[in-house]
Simulated scan of single mutants.
Amino acid sequence: MDGQTLQDIARARALELPAAGITRPFGPEYDVAKVVGKMFLLLTEVRGERIVVMKADPRESEMLRETHPDITPGYHMNKRHWITLSPGGGLDEQLVRELVTDSYLLVVETLPRAQRPVDPSRFLTSASP
Protein backbone atom coordinates (compact mmCIF):
# COMPACT_ATOMS: atom_id res chain seq x y z
CA MET A 1 0.00 0.00 0.00
CA ASP A 2 1.42 3.40 -0.91
CA GLY A 3 1.38 6.40 1.44
CA GLN A 4 -1.48 8.22 -0.26
CA THR A 5 -3.72 5.15 -0.07
CA LEU A 6 -2.73 4.57 3.55
CA GLN A 7 -3.68 8.13 4.50
CA ASP A 8 -6.87 8.06 2.42
CA ILE A 9 -8.08 4.90 4.20
CA ALA A 10 -7.21 6.28 7.64
CA ARG A 11 -8.82 9.67 6.93
CA ALA A 12 -11.99 8.09 5.51
CA ARG A 13 -12.36 5.79 8.51
CA ALA A 14 -11.80 8.63 10.97
CA LEU A 15 -14.51 10.69 9.31
CA GLU A 16 -16.97 7.79 9.56
CA LEU A 17 -16.69 7.72 13.35
CA PRO A 18 -19.28 9.58 15.47
CA ALA A 19 -18.32 13.17 16.44
CA ALA A 20 -14.90 12.90 14.74
CA GLY A 21 -13.50 15.55 12.45
CA ILE A 22 -10.29 16.61 10.75
CA THR A 23 -8.54 19.85 11.73
CA ARG A 24 -5.17 21.43 10.94
CA PRO A 25 -3.99 22.91 14.25
CA PHE A 26 -0.29 22.46 13.40
CA GLY A 27 -0.43 23.84 9.85
CA PRO A 28 -1.49 22.69 6.39
CA GLU A 29 0.95 19.77 6.29
CA TYR A 30 -0.74 18.04 9.25
CA ASP A 31 -4.26 16.60 9.23
CA VAL A 32 -5.38 15.84 12.78
CA ALA A 33 -8.44 13.73 13.57
CA LYS A 34 -10.12 14.62 16.85
CA VAL A 35 -13.13 13.47 18.80
CA VAL A 36 -14.63 16.05 21.19
CA GLY A 37 -11.41 18.08 20.90
CA LYS A 38 -9.06 15.16 21.66
CA MET A 39 -6.57 13.99 19.05
CA PHE A 40 -6.54 10.33 17.99
CA LEU A 41 -4.90 10.43 14.53
CA LEU A 42 -2.25 12.45 12.70
CA LEU A 43 -1.61 12.37 8.95
CA THR A 44 1.64 13.94 7.75
CA GLU A 45 4.71 13.47 5.61
CA VAL A 46 8.21 12.69 6.89
CA ARG A 47 11.22 12.76 4.57
CA GLY A 48 8.90 12.57 1.55
CA GLU A 49 6.92 9.62 2.90
CA ARG A 50 3.26 9.89 3.91
CA ILE A 51 2.60 8.35 7.32
CA VAL A 52 -0.24 7.86 9.78
CA VAL A 53 0.32 8.29 13.52
CA MET A 54 -2.32 7.10 16.01
CA LYS A 55 -2.95 6.17 19.62
CA ALA A 56 -2.58 2.54 20.59
CA ASP A 57 -2.82 0.46 23.73
CA PRO A 58 0.78 0.00 24.95
CA ARG A 59 0.57 -3.82 25.05
CA GLU A 60 -1.07 -3.99 21.64
CA SER A 61 1.36 -1.50 20.10
CA GLU A 62 4.29 -3.64 21.19
CA MET A 63 2.75 -6.71 19.56
CA LEU A 64 1.92 -4.75 16.40
CA ARG A 65 5.51 -3.47 16.10
CA GLU A 66 6.86 -6.99 16.52
CA THR A 67 4.59 -8.51 13.85
CA HIS A 68 4.39 -5.68 11.28
CA PRO A 69 7.58 -4.04 9.96
CA ASP A 70 5.47 -1.11 8.68
CA ILE A 71 4.37 -0.24 12.24
CA THR A 72 6.87 1.63 14.40
CA PRO A 73 6.77 3.79 17.55
CA GLY A 74 4.81 7.03 17.21
CA TYR A 75 6.62 9.76 15.28
CA HIS A 76 7.15 12.76 17.61
CA MET A 77 4.72 11.24 20.12
CA ASN A 78 4.90 9.17 23.29
CA LYS A 79 6.51 5.98 21.94
CA ARG A 80 4.54 3.80 24.35
CA HIS A 81 1.06 5.14 23.54
CA TRP A 82 1.35 6.03 19.85
CA ILE A 83 2.30 4.10 16.71
CA THR A 84 3.27 5.11 13.19
CA LEU A 85 2.00 3.30 10.10
CA SER A 86 4.25 3.60 7.06
CA PRO A 87 3.61 2.59 3.47
CA GLY A 88 4.75 -0.85 2.43
CA GLY A 89 3.44 -4.30 1.79
CA GLY A 90 2.54 -5.37 5.31
CA LEU A 91 -0.65 -3.42 5.94
CA ASP A 92 -4.08 -3.98 4.45
CA GLU A 93 -7.20 -1.82 4.47
CA GLN A 94 -9.00 -3.83 7.13
CA LEU A 95 -6.10 -3.57 9.59
CA VAL A 96 -5.75 0.19 9.03
CA ARG A 97 -9.50 0.71 9.57
CA GLU A 98 -9.42 -1.40 12.75
CA LEU A 99 -6.42 0.49 14.13
CA VAL A 100 -8.08 3.86 13.47
CA THR A 101 -11.23 2.64 15.26
CA ASP A 102 -9.17 1.35 18.19
CA SER A 103 -7.37 4.69 18.44
CA TYR A 104 -10.69 6.54 18.44
CA LEU A 105 -12.11 4.30 21.17
CA LEU A 106 -9.03 4.75 23.37
CA VAL A 107 -9.67 8.49 23.33
CA VAL A 108 -13.44 8.16 23.78
CA GLU A 109 -12.84 6.02 26.89
CA THR A 110 -11.00 8.94 28.51
CA LEU A 111 -13.84 11.40 27.95
CA PRO A 112 -16.39 12.13 30.69
CA ARG A 113 -19.39 9.84 30.14
CA ALA A 114 -21.66 12.75 29.27
CA GLN A 115 -19.34 13.78 26.40
CA ARG A 116 -18.83 10.33 24.88
CA PRO A 117 -20.41 10.12 21.41
CA VAL A 118 -20.53 6.31 21.74
CA ASP A 119 -20.28 3.71 24.48
CA PRO A 120 -16.80 2.25 23.88
CA SER A 121 -17.77 -1.11 25.37
CA ARG A 122 -20.63 -1.50 22.88
CA PHE A 123 -19.09 0.01 19.76
CA LEU A 124 -18.23 -2.88 17.44
CA THR A 125 -15.66 -2.47 14.68
CA SER A 126 -17.40 -5.07 12.54
CA ALA A 127 -20.77 -3.34 12.88
CA SER A 128 -19.45 0.09 11.97
CA PRO A 129 -19.24 1.40 8.39
Rank of each mutant, 00 (worst) to 15 (best):
E49N: 08
E49C: 06
R50N: 13
I51S: 04
V52A: 08
V52Q: 02
V53P: 01
M54T: 14
M54I: 04
M54P: 02
K55F: 02
K55C: 00
A56V: 14
D57L: 13
P58W: 09
R59V: 09
R59Q: 12
E60Y: 09
E60Q: 08
S61Y: 00
S61E: 04
E62W: 07
M63T: 14
L64S: 09
L64Q: 05
R65L: 05
E66H: 14
E66Y: 09
E66T: 14
T67F: 05
T67R: 15
H68Y: 14
H68N: 10
P69D: 11
D70V: 11
I71D: 11
I71G: 11
T72D: 06
T72W: 10
T72N: 13
G74K: 04
G74L: 02
H76M: 03
M77C: 03
M77S: 00
N78A: 11
N78M: 01
R80V: 13
H81T: 00
W82T: 02
T84P: 09
T84R: 10
S86I: 03
S86L: 14
S86Y: 08
P87D: 05
G88F: 07
G88E: 04
G89H: 09
G90W: 06
L91W: 07
D92S: 07
E93G: 09
Q94D: 15
L95D: 02
L95N: 02
R97C: 08
R97K: 13
E98G: 07
E98H: 14
V100N: 08
V100Y: 10
T101G: 01
T101M: 10
D102V: 00
S103W: 06
S103M: 02
S103N: 06
Y104Q: 07
L105D: 08
L105Q: 04
L106Q: 11
L106Y: 01
V107W: 03
V107Y: 05
V108R: 06
V108T: 01
E109S: 13
T110Q: 12
T110G: 09
L111T: 00
A114D: 14
Q115L: 15
P117N: 11
V118C: 12
D119E: 15
P120I: 04
S121H: 13
R122Q: 12
F123H: 08
T125E: 10
T125Q: 12
